[in-house]
């Protein structure tokens, strides 16, 4: 069964409709690329999945369990939403690392705060914190940042900051990891190192949704792809098919700008 099911999702901002009847499914261990021009609703879709926006209509299911239903206000309570968010991880375009914490603390902070809610926290505090720090270190190692754990975000390059942000999202072991244009704020050289990390995550069968403008990367790394335009899904299929031989005229038009450059 699909780990993620999105059913008839719609989002209005006042009178403008940014998402129109969005439905798709994602299998566990697969990577989905969402492509499309700016303003097509890609980012809003990710933000809806992470409960940063409240969809106007539709349902979101993870492992068959309804996380969000626009018709049922009970699923939208802040206290419940907080835990539901943990099904999703989010990597932002602008990193959004916490500037006042070291690299390691950025990765471990959320997990430490969650651990406080455990009943055995007081008794095993030291051990729990040590475990969390160890996990954080091994994540940083995976990202090739083991020698940076004591640095502050402003002391790192953009590519390194984004890799810390990926480690931070992974620290809570989300079911689905979302990337919102993770390399759009980076120059081509730094883009490479971040894509390499995402590629290795894909090889380890991490379930991912990647909003990106890197077409070659999306084609190679993602299993499926969705092309969005003006808030609707215009075309969907295997990443290779959608990007290499699009069926829809609108997709061709969009992709032609990439092949030219």
């Amino acid at each position: 069964m699909a780990i993620l099911q999105v059913q008839h999702l719609e989002k209005h901002f006042g009178k403008t409709q940014v998402l129109k009847d969005i439905s798709f499914e994602l299998e566990k261990g697969r990577a989905l690329a969402i492509i499309g021009s700016s303003g097509s609703g890609k980012t809003t879709l990710l933000r809806c999945l992470n409960f940063l926006e409240t969809p106007t209509h539709g349902k979101i299911l993870v492992e068959g369990q309804t996380l969000f239903d626009a018709e049922a206000p009970a699923t939208q309570k802040e206290s419940k939403v907080r835990k539901k968010r943990l099904h999703f991880g989010m990597v932002f375009q602008s990193f959004n690392l916490f500037p006042q914490y070291t690299v390691l603390k950025n990765v471990t902070l959320a997990k430490e705060l969650l651990a406080k809610e455990r009943p055995d926290y007081k008794a095993n505090k030291k051990q729990i914190l040590e475990e969390i720090a160890q996990e954080g270190r091994s994540l940083l190692q995976k990202m090739g940042l083991e020698d940076r754990e004591g640095h502050y975000p402003h002391q790192l390059s953009g590519g390194q900051q984004q890799r810390v942000a990926i480690a931070r999202a992974l620290a809570l072991s989300p079911d689905i990891l979302c990337f919102d244009e993770p390399t759009s704020a980076l120059d081509p050289e730094l883009t490479g190192e971040v894509l390499k990390v995402i590629r290795s995550l894909a090889e380890q069968n991490t379930t991912m949704i990647i909003v990106t403008h890197e077409m070659a990367f999306a084609r190679d790394v993602a299993d499926q792809a969705i092309f969005m335009d003006k808030g609707v899904i215009v075309e969907r299929g295997s990443a290779r098919q959608v990007i290499d031989s699009p069926r829809e005229e609108r997709t061709r038009q969009f992709l032609s700008r990439y092949s030219k450059s």
Partner: peptide, 25 residues
């Protein structure tokens, strides 16, 4: 930046955790 608050939210922090651990300093 709003992104700081949003980063806290997606990491499952409560409103007060976000204020005291992220925004305040």
């Amino acid at each position: 930046p709003v992104g700081q608050q949003e980063a806290g939210q997606v990491l499952g922090m409560t409103k007060s955790q976000i204020f005291f651990r992220v925004t305040l300093l």
